[in-house]
Design a binder for these strands. Structure first.
Length: 517
RNA sequence: GGCCUGGUGGCCAAGUGGUAAGGCAGAGCUCUGCAAAAGCUCCACGCGCCGGUUCGAAUCCGGCCCAGGCCUCCA
Protein backbone atom coordinates (compact mmCIF):
# COMPACT_ATOMS: atom_id res chain seq x y z
CA UNK A 1 0.00 0.00 0.00
CA UNK A 2 1.19 3.44 -0.73
CA UNK A 3 0.59 6.44 1.49
CA UNK A 4 -3.06 7.42 1.64
CA UNK A 5 -4.62 10.31 3.53
CA UNK A 6 -8.20 11.29 4.22
CA UNK A 7 -8.92 14.26 2.01
CA UNK A 8 -11.71 16.56 3.16
CA UNK A 9 -12.08 17.86 -0.37
CA UNK A 10 -12.99 14.48 -1.81
CA UNK A 11 -14.30 12.96 1.43
CA UNK A 12 -12.26 9.98 0.61
CA UNK A 13 -9.10 8.16 1.55
CA UNK A 14 -6.94 9.32 -1.36
CA UNK A 15 -3.61 8.03 -2.47
CA UNK A 16 -1.08 10.70 -1.70
CA UNK A 17 0.69 11.93 -4.81
CA UNK A 18 2.34 15.35 -4.72
CA UNK A 19 2.28 17.52 -7.83
CA UNK A 20 6.03 17.52 -8.12
CA UNK A 21 7.44 14.04 -7.62
CA UNK A 22 9.40 13.81 -4.41
CA UNK A 23 8.44 17.24 -3.13
CA UNK A 24 5.52 18.05 -0.84
CA UNK A 25 4.37 21.63 -0.35
CA UNK A 26 2.33 22.27 2.78
CA UNK A 27 0.65 25.39 4.09
CA UNK A 28 -0.59 25.31 7.66
CA UNK A 29 -2.84 27.91 9.24
CA UNK A 30 -1.04 29.13 12.30
CA UNK A 31 -2.17 31.17 15.26
CA UNK A 32 -3.65 34.53 15.71
CA UNK A 33 -0.89 35.80 17.92
CA UNK A 34 -2.71 37.34 20.84
CA UNK A 35 -2.40 34.53 23.41
CA UNK A 36 0.19 31.83 24.03
CA UNK A 37 -0.02 28.35 22.60
CA UNK A 38 -2.31 25.99 24.48
CA UNK A 39 -2.68 22.24 24.67
CA UNK A 40 -5.16 22.16 21.79
CA UNK A 41 -2.75 23.94 19.49
CA UNK A 42 -0.12 21.50 20.68
CA UNK A 43 -2.11 18.55 19.47
CA UNK A 44 -2.69 20.10 16.09
CA UNK A 45 0.89 21.14 15.45
CA UNK A 46 2.35 17.95 16.86
CA UNK A 47 0.24 16.10 14.34
CA UNK A 48 1.48 18.24 11.47
CA UNK A 49 5.01 17.69 12.68
CA UNK A 50 4.56 13.93 12.75
CA UNK A 51 3.01 14.02 9.29
CA UNK A 52 6.00 15.96 8.04
CA UNK A 53 8.43 13.57 9.73
CA UNK A 54 6.69 10.62 8.14
CA UNK A 55 6.79 12.20 4.69
CA UNK A 56 10.50 12.72 5.17
CA UNK A 57 10.89 9.16 6.40
CA UNK A 58 9.19 8.11 3.20
CA UNK A 59 11.76 10.04 1.24
CA UNK A 60 9.82 13.15 0.31
CA UNK A 61 11.36 16.56 0.53
CA UNK A 62 8.94 18.69 2.51
CA UNK A 63 8.48 22.41 2.12
CA UNK A 64 6.12 23.60 4.82
CA UNK A 65 5.18 27.09 5.86
CA UNK A 66 2.97 28.43 8.59
CA UNK A 67 1.52 31.86 9.19
CA UNK A 68 0.98 34.22 12.08
CA UNK A 69 -2.16 36.27 11.92
CA UNK A 70 -0.71 39.42 13.43
CA UNK A 71 -3.45 41.89 12.63
CA UNK A 72 -6.60 41.26 14.62
CA UNK A 73 -8.95 42.99 17.05
CA UNK A 74 -7.91 40.71 19.87
CA UNK A 75 -4.28 41.66 19.41
CA UNK A 76 -5.08 45.32 19.42
CA UNK A 77 -7.19 44.92 22.52
CA UNK A 78 -4.11 43.61 24.34
CA UNK A 79 -1.97 46.53 23.36
CA UNK A 80 -1.43 49.37 25.78
CA UNK A 81 0.76 52.45 26.07
CA UNK A 82 3.81 50.32 26.83
CA UNK A 83 3.33 47.62 24.21
CA UNK A 84 2.00 48.38 20.77
CA UNK A 85 -0.10 45.80 18.94
CA UNK A 86 2.91 44.77 16.89
CA UNK A 87 4.89 44.13 20.07
CA UNK A 88 2.09 41.94 21.38
CA UNK A 89 2.12 40.00 18.14
CA UNK A 90 5.89 39.59 18.11
CA UNK A 91 6.06 38.51 21.72
CA UNK A 92 3.34 35.95 21.24
CA UNK A 93 4.97 34.67 18.08
CA UNK A 94 8.25 34.27 19.93
CA UNK A 95 6.57 32.30 22.71
CA UNK A 96 4.94 30.10 20.07
CA UNK A 97 8.37 29.29 18.66
CA UNK A 98 9.67 28.46 22.14
CA UNK A 99 6.75 26.17 22.88
CA UNK A 100 7.06 24.44 19.53
CA UNK A 101 10.73 23.75 20.10
CA UNK A 102 9.99 22.44 23.57
CA UNK A 103 7.57 19.99 21.97
CA UNK A 104 10.19 19.08 19.34
CA UNK A 105 8.12 20.44 16.51
CA UNK A 106 10.62 20.89 13.73
CA UNK A 107 11.12 24.37 12.35
CA UNK A 108 9.01 25.36 9.38
CA UNK A 109 10.74 26.67 6.30
CA UNK A 110 9.02 30.01 6.87
CA UNK A 111 6.82 31.71 9.43
CA UNK A 112 4.87 34.32 7.53
CA UNK A 113 3.24 37.36 9.04
CA UNK A 114 0.05 38.67 7.55
CA UNK A 115 1.24 42.26 7.75
CA UNK A 116 4.33 41.44 5.69
CA UNK A 117 2.13 40.48 2.76
CA UNK A 118 -0.30 43.35 2.54
CA UNK A 119 0.61 44.08 -1.07
CA UNK A 120 -0.15 40.54 -2.13
CA UNK A 121 -3.49 40.72 -0.36
CA UNK A 122 -4.43 44.03 -1.89
CA UNK A 123 -3.50 42.66 -5.27
CA UNK A 124 -5.70 39.65 -4.74
CA UNK A 125 -8.67 41.78 -3.67
CA UNK A 126 -8.21 43.84 -6.82
CA UNK A 127 -8.29 40.76 -8.97
CA UNK A 128 -11.41 39.47 -7.26
CA UNK A 129 -13.13 42.78 -7.88
CA UNK A 130 -12.09 42.73 -11.53
CA UNK A 131 -13.39 39.20 -11.99
CA UNK A 132 -16.73 40.07 -10.44
CA UNK A 133 -16.28 38.00 -7.28
CA UNK A 134 -16.40 40.98 -4.95
CA UNK A 135 -18.11 44.32 -4.45
CA UNK A 136 -17.54 47.47 -2.43
CA UNK A 137 -19.90 48.89 0.19
CA UNK A 138 -18.87 52.02 2.13
CA UNK A 139 -15.17 51.42 1.68
CA UNK A 140 -15.46 47.75 2.62
CA UNK A 141 -14.80 45.03 0.09
CA UNK A 142 -17.04 41.99 0.38
CA UNK A 143 -16.76 38.64 -1.34
CA UNK A 144 -19.84 37.67 -3.32
CA UNK A 145 -20.37 34.01 -2.42
CA UNK A 146 -23.05 33.62 -5.07
CA UNK A 147 -20.44 34.31 -7.73
CA UNK A 148 -18.66 31.07 -6.92
CA UNK A 149 -20.66 28.02 -7.89
CA UNK A 150 -18.68 25.65 -5.68
CA UNK A 151 -19.14 27.70 -2.53
CA UNK A 152 -19.88 25.29 0.32
CA UNK A 153 -18.52 22.26 -1.43
CA UNK A 154 -15.48 21.81 0.78
CA UNK A 155 -17.27 22.02 4.12
CA UNK A 156 -20.71 20.83 3.10
CA UNK A 157 -22.34 24.03 4.26
CA UNK A 158 -24.62 24.99 1.40
CA UNK A 159 -25.88 28.51 0.92
CA UNK A 160 -29.48 27.36 1.14
CA UNK A 161 -29.21 25.72 4.54
CA UNK A 162 -28.21 27.07 7.88
CA UNK A 163 -29.73 30.48 7.83
CA UNK A 164 -32.21 30.16 10.66
CA UNK A 165 -29.58 30.58 13.32
CA UNK A 166 -28.24 33.66 11.61
CA UNK A 167 -31.53 35.51 11.59
CA UNK A 168 -30.28 38.12 14.04
CA UNK A 169 -27.41 39.20 11.90
CA UNK A 170 -29.46 38.87 8.78
CA UNK A 171 -31.51 41.92 9.73
CA UNK A 172 -28.42 43.82 10.71
CA UNK A 173 -26.73 43.21 7.39
CA UNK A 174 -29.84 43.63 5.29
CA UNK A 175 -29.19 45.85 2.34
CA UNK A 176 -25.47 45.81 2.87
CA UNK A 177 -24.56 42.26 1.99
CA UNK A 178 -25.91 40.62 -1.12
CA UNK A 179 -25.94 37.34 0.76
CA UNK A 180 -25.55 36.74 4.50
CA UNK A 181 -22.57 34.48 3.89
CA UNK A 182 -20.63 37.19 2.06
CA UNK A 183 -17.46 37.93 3.96
CA UNK A 184 -14.97 40.75 4.32
CA UNK A 185 -11.92 40.96 2.09
CA UNK A 186 -10.87 44.43 3.12
CA UNK A 187 -12.29 46.90 5.59
CA UNK A 188 -11.64 50.44 6.73
CA UNK A 189 -9.69 50.62 9.98
CA UNK A 190 -11.26 52.07 13.09
CA UNK A 191 -10.01 55.11 14.97
CA UNK A 192 -6.37 54.67 16.01
CA UNK A 193 -6.06 51.31 14.30
CA UNK A 194 -3.33 50.42 11.85
CA UNK A 195 -4.23 51.10 8.24
CA UNK A 196 -2.61 50.54 4.89
CA UNK A 197 -3.07 52.58 1.73
CA UNK A 198 -4.29 50.69 -1.30
CA UNK A 199 -4.23 53.33 -3.98
CA UNK A 200 -7.85 52.53 -4.78
CA UNK A 201 -10.61 55.08 -4.83
CA UNK A 202 -13.47 53.05 -3.44
CA UNK A 203 -11.45 51.35 -0.71
CA UNK A 204 -8.50 53.61 -0.22
CA UNK A 205 -7.20 52.64 3.18
CA UNK A 206 -7.82 50.00 5.79
CA UNK A 207 -6.81 46.47 6.66
CA UNK A 208 -7.33 42.98 5.28
CA UNK A 209 -9.99 40.51 6.36
CA UNK A 210 -8.88 37.30 7.97
CA UNK A 211 -9.39 34.88 5.10
CA UNK A 212 -7.48 36.73 2.43
CA UNK A 213 -4.19 36.47 4.33
CA UNK A 214 -3.81 32.73 4.02
CA UNK A 215 -4.92 32.71 0.42
CA UNK A 216 -2.41 35.35 -0.56
CA UNK A 217 0.54 34.06 1.42
CA UNK A 218 0.16 30.41 0.52
CA UNK A 219 -0.17 31.02 -3.21
CA UNK A 220 2.61 33.54 -3.25
CA UNK A 221 5.13 31.29 -1.52
CA UNK A 222 4.06 27.82 -2.56
CA UNK A 223 2.72 28.47 -6.02
CA UNK A 224 -0.68 28.91 -7.57
CA UNK A 225 -1.49 25.34 -6.65
CA UNK A 226 0.08 23.22 -3.94
CA UNK A 227 -0.28 19.89 -2.19
CA UNK A 228 -1.58 20.14 1.35
CA UNK A 229 -3.47 22.79 3.24
CA UNK A 230 -3.65 22.26 6.96
CA UNK A 231 -5.07 23.75 10.07
CA UNK A 232 -7.54 22.09 12.40
CA UNK A 233 -11.15 21.05 12.03
CA UNK A 234 -12.51 24.39 13.25
CA UNK A 235 -10.91 26.11 10.28
CA UNK A 236 -12.94 24.10 7.82
CA UNK A 237 -15.81 26.53 7.93
CA UNK A 238 -15.78 29.36 7.28
CA UNK A 239 -12.05 29.93 6.93
CA UNK A 240 -11.03 27.23 4.48
CA UNK A 241 -14.29 27.41 2.59
CA UNK A 242 -13.67 31.11 2.06
CA UNK A 243 -10.08 30.54 1.09
CA UNK A 244 -11.18 28.21 -1.66
CA UNK A 245 -13.73 30.75 -2.86
CA UNK A 246 -11.02 33.38 -3.09
CA UNK A 247 -8.23 31.32 -4.53
CA UNK A 248 -9.83 28.81 -6.84
CA UNK A 249 -11.14 31.37 -9.35
CA UNK A 250 -7.74 33.09 -9.53
CA UNK A 251 -5.30 30.22 -9.42
CA UNK A 252 -5.64 29.18 -13.04
CA UNK A 253 -5.49 25.51 -12.06
CA UNK A 254 -8.14 22.84 -11.96
CA UNK A 255 -7.58 22.42 -8.29
CA UNK A 256 -6.06 24.97 -5.97
CA UNK A 257 -5.14 22.57 -3.17
CA UNK A 258 -4.76 18.84 -3.67
CA UNK A 259 -5.30 17.61 -0.13
CA UNK A 260 -7.21 19.26 2.67
CA UNK A 261 -6.55 17.61 5.99
CA UNK A 262 -8.36 18.48 9.20
CA UNK A 263 -7.13 17.18 12.54
CA UNK A 264 -9.80 16.94 15.22
CA UNK A 265 -9.92 18.91 18.40
CA UNK A 266 -8.95 17.92 21.84
CA UNK A 267 -11.45 18.21 24.62
CA UNK A 268 -11.36 18.16 28.34
CA UNK A 269 -13.63 15.52 29.80
CA UNK A 270 -16.21 16.01 27.13
CA UNK A 271 -16.09 19.77 27.44
CA UNK A 272 -14.58 21.76 24.66
CA UNK A 273 -11.66 23.84 25.74
CA UNK A 274 -12.37 27.49 25.27
CA UNK A 275 -11.36 30.75 26.72
CA UNK A 276 -14.86 31.62 27.81
CA UNK A 277 -15.13 28.47 29.94
CA UNK A 278 -11.72 29.23 31.36
CA UNK A 279 -10.30 25.74 30.99
CA UNK A 280 -7.40 26.61 28.75
CA UNK A 281 -4.14 24.89 29.59
CA UNK A 282 -1.01 26.51 28.25
CA UNK A 283 1.79 24.47 26.74
CA UNK A 284 4.24 25.88 29.22
CA UNK A 285 2.06 24.76 32.09
CA UNK A 286 1.60 21.34 30.53
CA UNK A 287 5.33 20.85 30.13
CA UNK A 288 5.80 21.49 33.82
CA UNK A 289 3.63 18.49 34.53
CA UNK A 290 4.67 16.10 31.75
CA UNK A 291 7.75 15.54 29.66
CA UNK A 292 7.46 16.45 26.01
CA UNK A 293 7.89 12.85 24.90
CA UNK A 294 5.11 11.61 27.18
CA UNK A 295 2.87 14.24 25.63
CA UNK A 296 3.78 13.30 22.08
CA UNK A 297 3.33 9.62 22.78
CA UNK A 298 -0.06 10.40 24.28
CA UNK A 299 -1.07 12.36 21.18
CA UNK A 300 0.14 9.54 18.97
CA UNK A 301 -2.05 7.05 20.79
CA UNK A 302 -5.22 8.51 19.33
CA UNK A 303 -5.88 8.96 15.63
CA UNK A 304 -5.65 12.57 14.48
CA UNK A 305 -9.22 12.64 13.18
CA UNK A 306 -10.64 11.42 16.47
CA UNK A 307 -11.49 13.78 19.29
CA UNK A 308 -8.93 13.37 21.97
CA UNK A 309 -10.09 13.28 25.55
CA UNK A 310 -7.54 15.10 27.61
CA UNK A 311 -6.76 14.78 31.29
CA UNK A 312 -3.55 14.62 33.26
CA UNK A 313 -4.39 11.13 34.49
CA UNK A 314 -4.70 9.93 30.90
CA UNK A 315 -1.22 11.17 30.05
CA UNK A 316 0.07 9.53 33.22
CA UNK A 317 -1.48 6.19 32.28
CA UNK A 318 -0.14 6.45 28.76
CA UNK A 319 3.36 7.28 29.90
CA UNK A 320 3.43 4.28 32.26
CA UNK A 321 3.54 2.09 29.19
CA UNK A 322 5.73 4.41 27.21
CA UNK A 323 8.42 4.34 29.90
CA UNK A 324 9.02 0.72 29.10
CA UNK A 325 10.08 1.73 25.61
CA UNK A 326 12.36 4.60 26.56
CA UNK A 327 13.81 2.45 29.28
CA UNK A 328 14.84 -0.19 26.79
CA UNK A 329 16.50 2.48 24.67
CA UNK A 330 18.44 3.64 27.72
CA UNK A 331 19.50 0.12 28.56
CA UNK A 332 20.69 -0.56 25.02
CA UNK A 333 22.44 2.77 24.93
CA UNK A 334 24.25 1.89 28.13
CA UNK A 335 25.38 -1.49 26.87
CA UNK A 336 26.52 -0.15 23.51
CA UNK A 337 28.31 2.83 24.96
CA UNK A 338 30.52 0.60 27.05
CA UNK A 339 31.71 -1.32 24.00
CA UNK A 340 34.36 -0.39 21.43
CA UNK A 341 33.12 1.03 18.20
CA UNK A 342 34.40 -2.02 16.33
CA UNK A 343 32.53 -4.40 18.58
CA UNK A 344 29.18 -2.77 17.93
CA UNK A 345 29.49 -1.99 14.23
CA UNK A 346 26.73 -3.44 12.12
CA UNK A 347 28.58 -5.36 9.42
CA UNK A 348 26.07 -5.80 6.61
CA UNK A 349 24.65 -2.61 5.15
CA UNK A 350 21.68 -2.24 2.87
CA UNK A 351 19.33 -4.97 4.01
CA UNK A 352 16.74 -2.38 4.83
CA UNK A 353 16.39 -1.61 1.15
CA UNK A 354 14.70 -4.94 0.59
CA UNK A 355 11.73 -3.77 2.62
CA UNK A 356 10.81 -1.06 0.18
CA UNK A 357 8.29 -1.52 -2.51
CA UNK A 358 9.37 -0.42 -5.96
CA UNK A 359 6.86 2.33 -6.51
CA UNK A 360 7.64 4.26 -3.38
CA UNK A 361 9.83 7.22 -2.82
CA UNK A 362 13.12 5.99 -1.42
CA UNK A 363 13.70 6.26 2.31
CA UNK A 364 17.04 7.82 2.94
CA UNK A 365 18.14 5.39 5.60
CA UNK A 366 21.32 3.71 4.74
CA UNK A 367 21.64 1.96 8.03
CA UNK A 368 20.87 -1.70 8.14
CA UNK A 369 18.11 -1.96 10.69
CA UNK A 370 17.31 -5.49 9.79
CA UNK A 371 20.28 -7.44 10.99
CA UNK A 372 21.20 -10.33 13.16
CA UNK A 373 19.49 -11.84 16.14
CA UNK A 374 16.61 -9.34 16.24
CA UNK A 375 16.34 -8.81 12.50
CA UNK A 376 13.10 -10.71 12.13
CA UNK A 377 11.41 -8.66 14.83
CA UNK A 378 12.76 -5.45 13.35
CA UNK A 379 11.55 -6.30 9.86
CA UNK A 380 8.10 -7.12 11.17
CA UNK A 381 8.01 -3.90 13.14
CA UNK A 382 9.06 -1.80 10.16
CA UNK A 383 6.40 -3.38 7.96
CA UNK A 384 3.69 -2.80 10.52
CA UNK A 385 4.88 0.73 11.15
CA UNK A 386 4.80 1.68 7.49
CA UNK A 387 1.48 -0.06 6.93
CA UNK A 388 -0.08 1.86 9.82
CA UNK A 389 1.34 5.23 8.85
CA UNK A 390 0.55 4.78 5.18
CA UNK A 391 -3.08 4.36 6.15
CA UNK A 392 -3.97 7.96 6.91
CA UNK A 393 -1.13 8.49 9.37
CA UNK A 394 -2.27 5.72 11.71
CA UNK A 395 -0.11 6.62 14.66
CA UNK A 396 -2.09 4.52 17.17
CA UNK A 397 -1.33 1.35 15.23
CA UNK A 398 2.27 2.46 14.87
CA UNK A 399 2.55 2.79 18.64
CA UNK A 400 0.98 -0.63 19.09
CA UNK A 401 3.59 -2.04 16.71
CA UNK A 402 6.31 -0.38 18.78
CA UNK A 403 4.98 -1.99 21.95
CA UNK A 404 4.96 -5.39 20.33
CA UNK A 405 8.44 -4.83 18.98
CA UNK A 406 9.83 -3.83 22.35
CA UNK A 407 8.14 -6.78 24.00
CA UNK A 408 9.71 -9.11 21.47
CA UNK A 409 13.12 -7.61 22.02
CA UNK A 410 12.83 -8.07 25.77
CA UNK A 411 11.54 -11.59 25.31
CA UNK A 412 14.46 -12.39 23.01
CA UNK A 413 16.81 -11.35 25.78
CA UNK A 414 18.21 -8.20 24.23
CA UNK A 415 18.85 -6.79 27.69
CA UNK A 416 21.68 -9.21 28.27
CA UNK A 417 22.69 -10.07 24.73
CA UNK A 418 26.41 -9.94 23.96
CA UNK A 419 25.74 -9.85 20.25
CA UNK A 420 26.39 -6.13 20.09
CA UNK A 421 26.04 -5.59 16.34
CA UNK A 422 22.55 -7.07 16.57
CA UNK A 423 21.80 -4.91 19.58
CA UNK A 424 23.03 -1.86 17.68
CA UNK A 425 20.79 -2.64 14.72
CA UNK A 426 17.71 -2.96 16.92
CA UNK A 427 18.66 0.17 18.83
CA UNK A 428 18.83 2.17 15.62
CA UNK A 429 15.66 0.69 14.28
CA UNK A 430 13.74 1.60 17.41
CA UNK A 431 15.08 5.12 17.84
CA UNK A 432 14.71 5.94 14.15
CA UNK A 433 11.03 5.07 14.19
CA UNK A 434 10.33 6.78 17.48
CA UNK A 435 11.82 9.84 15.85
CA UNK A 436 9.03 9.84 13.29
CA UNK A 437 6.52 10.04 16.12
CA UNK A 438 8.36 13.04 17.52
CA UNK A 439 10.26 11.15 20.19
CA UNK A 440 13.89 12.18 19.93
CA UNK A 441 16.53 10.01 21.57
CA UNK A 442 19.73 11.16 19.93
CA UNK A 443 23.14 9.70 20.67
CA UNK A 444 25.96 11.27 18.76
CA UNK A 445 28.31 8.34 19.23
CA UNK A 446 25.88 5.52 18.58
CA UNK A 447 23.75 6.97 15.82
CA UNK A 448 25.22 10.17 14.40
CA UNK A 449 22.88 10.30 11.40
CA UNK A 450 19.85 10.47 13.67
CA UNK A 451 21.46 12.79 16.17
CA UNK A 452 22.13 15.25 13.36
CA UNK A 453 18.40 15.52 12.70
CA UNK A 454 17.39 15.94 16.33
CA UNK A 455 17.04 19.08 18.38
CA UNK A 456 20.19 19.78 20.35
CA UNK A 457 19.93 18.29 23.82
CA UNK A 458 20.09 20.83 26.59
CA UNK A 459 22.93 19.24 28.52
CA UNK A 460 20.89 17.69 31.35
CA UNK A 461 22.27 14.21 30.87
CA UNK A 462 25.68 15.04 32.26
CA UNK A 463 24.36 16.20 35.61
CA UNK A 464 24.68 12.71 37.06
CA UNK A 465 28.39 12.43 36.19
CA UNK A 466 29.84 13.77 39.45
CA UNK A 467 27.74 11.30 41.43
CA UNK A 468 28.39 8.35 39.17
CA UNK A 469 31.62 7.32 40.88
CA UNK A 470 30.03 7.54 44.31
CA UNK A 471 27.00 5.53 43.30
CA UNK A 472 29.16 2.91 41.63
CA UNK A 473 31.27 2.58 44.76
CA UNK A 474 28.20 2.15 46.94
CA UNK A 475 26.88 -0.49 44.60
CA UNK A 476 30.18 -2.32 44.80
CA UNK A 477 29.91 -2.34 48.56
CA UNK A 478 26.35 -3.61 48.25
CA UNK A 479 27.45 -6.38 45.91
CA UNK A 480 30.07 -7.48 48.44
CA UNK A 481 27.54 -7.44 51.24
CA UNK A 482 25.13 -9.54 49.18
CA UNK A 483 27.88 -11.97 48.36
CA UNK A 484 28.52 -12.31 52.10
CA UNK A 485 24.76 -12.67 52.61
CA UNK A 486 24.78 -9.57 54.78
CA UNK A 487 21.36 -8.52 53.52
CA UNK A 488 20.79 -6.03 56.29
CA UNK A 489 23.73 -4.06 55.00
CA UNK A 490 22.90 -4.48 51.32
CA UNK A 491 19.30 -3.39 51.86
CA UNK A 492 20.46 -0.44 53.87
CA UNK A 493 22.64 0.71 50.98
CA UNK A 494 19.76 0.28 48.60
CA UNK A 495 17.46 2.25 50.87
CA UNK A 496 19.91 5.11 51.09
CA UNK A 497 20.32 5.27 47.33
CA UNK A 498 16.61 5.00 46.78
CA UNK A 499 15.98 7.84 49.17
CA UNK A 500 18.34 9.88 47.02
CA UNK A 501 16.28 9.04 43.97
CA UNK A 502 18.49 6.30 42.55
CA UNK A 503 16.50 3.35 41.28
CA UNK A 504 18.30 0.02 41.45
CA UNK A 505 17.61 -3.11 39.48
CA UNK A 506 19.56 -6.32 39.89
CA UNK A 507 20.32 -8.17 36.69
CA UNK A 508 22.34 -11.30 35.90
CA UNK A 509 25.10 -8.94 34.89
CA UNK A 510 25.09 -7.00 38.13
CA UNK A 511 23.11 -4.06 39.45
CA UNK A 512 21.84 -1.41 37.10
CA UNK A 513 20.91 2.03 38.31
CA UNK A 514 19.12 5.05 37.01
CA UNK A 515 18.01 8.36 38.38
CA UNK A 516 14.25 8.25 38.92
CA UNK A 517 11.89 10.94 37.85
C1' G B 1 -33.86 24.81 11.18
C1' G B 2 -29.40 22.91 8.26
C1' C B 3 -24.76 20.07 8.21
C1' C B 4 -21.50 16.45 10.66
C1' U B 5 -19.12 13.11 13.99
C1' G B 6 -18.94 9.37 17.59
C1' G B 7 -21.08 5.37 21.01
C1' U B 8 -15.81 -1.15 21.46
C1' G B 9 -13.76 -4.73 28.34
C1' G B 10 -12.90 -0.94 35.00
C1' C B 11 -10.20 3.36 32.05
C1' C B 12 -7.79 5.03 27.24
C1' A B 13 -7.94 3.26 22.28
C1' A B 14 -7.18 0.44 17.22
C1' G B 15 -10.12 -2.10 13.94
C1' U B 16 -14.92 -0.35 7.19
C1' G B 17 -17.35 -7.94 5.46
C1' G B 18 -14.19 -13.16 7.76
C1' U B 19 -14.60 -14.29 13.16
C1' A B 20 -12.33 -8.33 18.70
C1' A B 21 -4.60 -4.67 18.00
C1' G B 22 -2.12 -2.07 21.78
C1' G B 23 -1.66 0.59 26.49
C1' C B 24 -3.18 1.53 31.77
C1' A B 25 -5.37 -0.83 35.93
C1' G B 26 -6.27 -5.99 37.96
C1' A B 27 -5.16 -11.60 38.98
C1' G B 28 -1.79 -15.85 39.02
C1' C B 29 3.00 -17.88 37.99
C1' U B 30 8.60 -17.82 36.78
C1' C B 31 13.18 -15.54 38.08
C1' U B 32 15.16 -13.15 42.76
C1' G B 33 17.83 -13.54 49.72
C1' C B 34 14.12 -9.68 49.42
C1' A B 35 12.75 -5.78 46.25
C1' A B 36 12.78 -3.90 41.41
C1' A B 37 12.77 -5.11 36.36
C1' A B 38 11.54 -8.52 32.73
C1' G B 39 8.98 -12.86 30.97
C1' C B 40 4.72 -16.23 30.77
C1' U B 41 -0.58 -16.89 31.56
C1' C B 42 -5.54 -14.90 32.48
C1' C B 43 -8.93 -10.65 31.87
C1' A B 44 -15.17 -8.25 25.91
C1' C B 45 -19.06 -15.51 23.04
C1' G B 46 -19.24 -9.56 22.33
C1' C B 47 -18.42 -4.01 19.92
C1' G B 48 -25.41 1.75 22.34
C1' C B 49 -30.55 -0.73 21.19
C1' C B 50 -33.97 -3.23 17.54
C1' G B 51 -34.57 -5.15 12.82
C1' G B 52 -32.48 -6.32 7.78
C1' U B 53 -28.77 -7.86 3.81
C1' U B 54 -24.99 -11.92 3.71
C1' C B 55 -22.37 -18.43 4.07
C1' G B 56 -20.44 -14.75 7.47
C1' A B 57 -21.15 -7.82 10.29
C1' A B 58 -18.20 -4.05 15.47
C1' U B 59 -17.71 -3.30 10.25
C1' C B 60 -23.10 -2.63 4.98
C1' C B 61 -28.67 -0.93 5.08
C1' G B 62 -33.14 0.96 7.90
C1' G B 63 -35.24 2.68 12.47
C1' C B 64 -34.50 4.21 17.48
C1' C B 65 -31.75 5.94 21.96
C1' C B 66 -27.54 8.66 23.84
C1' A B 67 -23.25 12.01 23.70
C1' G B 68 -20.81 15.75 21.20
C1' G B 69 -19.32 19.23 17.28
C1' C B 70 -20.18 22.97 13.41
C1' C B 71 -23.50 26.71 11.05
C1' U B 72 -20.33 33.26 14.96
C1' C B 73 -13.66 34.48 16.64
C1' C B 74 -11.50 29.71 17.65
C1' A B 75 -5.91 24.68 16.51
Amino acid sequence: MALHVYNTRTRNLDRFVPQTPGVVRIYTCGLTVYAPMHIGHARTYCFWDTFRRYLEYRGFHVLSIINYTDIDDRIMKKADERRGWLDVAEETAASFRRDCRALRIKDYAAYTRATDFIDAQVDMVKQLLERGHAYVVDGEVLYDVQSFADYGKLSGNTLEGGQAGASGRLAEDAGRKKHPADFTLWKPSGEGQPAWETGQEAWSSGRPGWHIECSAMSSMLLGSSFDVHGGAIDNLFPHHENEVAQSQPLCGQDCWVGYWMHPEHLDLRGVKMSKSIGNVIGVENLLERHSYDAIRWFFASTHYRTKLAFADELIDASSEGFKKITKLVKILEGRLSEADEDARTIPVPGIYASLRSEDEAVPRERESFVYGAFGESSAKFIRRFIEAMDDDVGCPRATAAAFDYVNELYAAGIESSDDLPSVAAAYRCLTRHLYVLGIELPNEALYPQLAADCFPVAGGGEAAEPYKAVIDRMLEARAEARKAKDFAKSDMIRDVLQAAGVVIEDTPKGARWDLGE
